[in-house]
Amino acid sequence: MHELSLCDDLLGQVIAIAADNKAQAVASITVQCGPLSGVEPLLLDSAFAMVKVGTIAEQAELIIQSAPVIVQCQRCGEQSEASANHLICTACNSPDTLLISGNQLILASIGLDCAV
């Protein structure tokens, strides 16, 4: 259940940003979570439901977006969509690839209720 400890970090960032922007409430939180991030979106969602209670983000909707797994071959230059356990180049089979998407674990944006 390391999703719970991640939510602490997430909530800390959200609260700080809400305070910076003098927001009254947090309406939404968008997190991008790739298949290779090691985080299970469903668990993140239920963990967040626990930690948000009593905070400025209590009413916030957590939007978890997945991300495609994309590798860029360092040998032939081909950029291709891959699966989480098959990350070699689909064009030339080289293992010399760079993962350019798929392991993100990012707080992408938050919607703040700043209305007076």
């Binding site: 960032q13 940003i17 990012i106 707080l107 992408a108 944006s109 919607g111 703040l112 209720d113």
Partner: peptide
């Protein structure tokens, strides 16, 4: 009524 802040953290 909602301001979106891009964070990318």
């Amino acid at each position: 009524g909602v301001t979106t802040v891009t964070v990318l953290q």
